[in-house]
Nucleic acid binder design. Structure first.
Lengths: 274, 274
DNA sequence: CGCCAGATTGACACGGCTCAAGCGGTGTGG
DNA sequence: CCACACCGCTTGAGCCGTGTCAATCTGGCG
């Protein structure tokens, strides 16, 4: 790991740290065009709706800082979170050419979003095919992630699901320089984790405990640390391929992840007493 | 319902019945360009791999006839089917600008696919922004469907999941003229349905039986008929919004679905004895 | 006729849910 | 500064939906 802190402070609040901006499909003129198209940058409180359920749709929102969640309210009273958004992600995948029915996006923490007015986006798409292609690429990456989540929900046990989620989050946060060694700030409530994993918050609690007991992870406050990356990632069959890191110009990480080279500089797991 | 049969025979094997082609974003010149870009059309046997796990990626495949499935093999030995492809769907959402790791696409029945060579597609994307936009739209629709499936897997019971799937399939097949009143040909094995719903084939069997017992559906061979659409769709909270039918030029259906106007011409449910 | 994949059914085990209680931090008003 | 309330976390006991294992049945097909 390279010093996450500087990156975090200096870049993570600008478009240039964004996955869209860093797409391998774009060259410098494209990036300039993108940068100039960005409109207001807003700071939002935790709990704010970025995209209303009925679909505001006036602009494309890019999350620059903080966490957000795409969520769904089912008529049987339960809630589902089909996507977690971390810095660099695009918020309204569905609001672009569509109105988004039944899905909202809400800030989980305080944070900032950049807004790309719809009209400028349309101009961009028309004048710069590479931008369209980059956006297409991002949409497909998100599809890939959704498929993996579906597989988790369908075919993995609670422990596997949780382990897989933690692995994914670590890698995604690495890419945007928000990881801290093998740890990261996890602002999610156990209720929210439950809605991601399709479990009960109570069971999330127990599952988390069992991971702690196994010495795989530990938590201090809202900071989660993975102590046994090889064990954890193997136990849930985590393979970062579905994140398509190549797309975000982080290809180097793929190799590192697989060889485990990056994870060596870690303190040994302290076994928490049951 | 309007005569599904003619459409089925005359159009469903051509690009013009395709969701991409019928996107609301395209005008006639766009459509012509699309049509001309199509390369070979291949007939495939059931079981054929359309997109290999390692990602052939030489072309974009559009399913013209038959069913296919995107699938995932997990290292814990189980299988997951995150997407079912019906006529008109694009097969390799992930293979376009990416190599698709860990996901394959395989024909479930015999059928035909049109192939759009990658190079021509790239030319299209560059020269016709509307095509790029249409593709983007399709990607987002798929996103939306994936989110809905995730919600099902996470928060719906077995009966609700199955009911929801059947409702979705009916509507999707309607759009492409392959439904037959309130029924349709369902070529899926109970094993395959299980991999879609995250259940066991055994439990799918039981669940299906309970739907039959409730008089909601019936099956004769591989033909499934929904007898109680209002009941079935309400019981699982089915709301076709997430399919974004407006995108495919089938907006008229949305209204019909909600008012229930279309479903009136149906024989009453025959209660199958338990 | 025998074979085989898929459908069906039953008995039983278990993972995750429900209900219920208690705990700790933190913000707030008196 | 304390009391209180509230939210999120934690833990326990028991239940239920779904999985597992094992047989049997059916229809198509060589």
């Amino acid at each position: 790991m390279r010093g996450g802190k500087e990156i975090q402070v200096d870049e993570s609040r600008t478009l240039s740290s964004t996955l869209l901006w860093r797409s391998k499909h774009l060259d410098s003129p494209d990036r300039d065009a993108l940068s100039q198209a960005v409109g207001k940058v807003r700071h939002l409180e935790a709990g704010t709706e970025i995209v209303a359920h009925d679909g505001g749709g006036g602009a494309l929102h890019v999350l620059l800082d903080g966490w957000a969640a795409r969520y769904k309210l089912l008529d049987n009273g339960s809630r589902s979170i089909p996507a977690l958004l971390t810095p660099g992600d695009i918020c309204d995948a569905e609001a672009l050419p569509l109105r988004s029915l039944g899905t909202g996006v809400r800030m989980l923490t305080g944070g900032t979003v950049a807004m790309l007015p719809r009209q400028r986006l349309n101009e961009l798409l028309a004048s710069r095919p590479a931008v369209a292609k980059a956006l297409l690429g991002l949409a497909f990456v998100e599809n890939s992630i959704l498929s993996e989540w579906a597989a988790s929900l369908a075919r993995r046990s609670a422990v596997e699901r949780l382990a897989h989620l933690l692995c994914e989050l670590l890698v995604r946060l690495w890419v945007v320089g928000q990881a801290d060694g093998l740890g990261f700030h996890l602002p999610l409530t156990q209720d929210q984790i439950a809605d991601v994993l399709g479990l009960t918050s109570i069971h999330v609690n127990r599952t988390l405990r069992s991971l702690r007991a196994a010495g795989a992870v530990s938590m201090r406050g809202r900071h989660l640390t993975i102590h046994d990356w090889p064990g954890l990632s193997a136990s849930c069959g985590f393979d970062p391929g579905y994140l398509h890191l190549e797309m975000s110009g982080s290809a180097f990480l793929v190799d590192a992840l697989q060889t485990g080279r990056v994870m060596r500089a870690v303190e040994p797991p302290k076994t928490t007493p049951l």
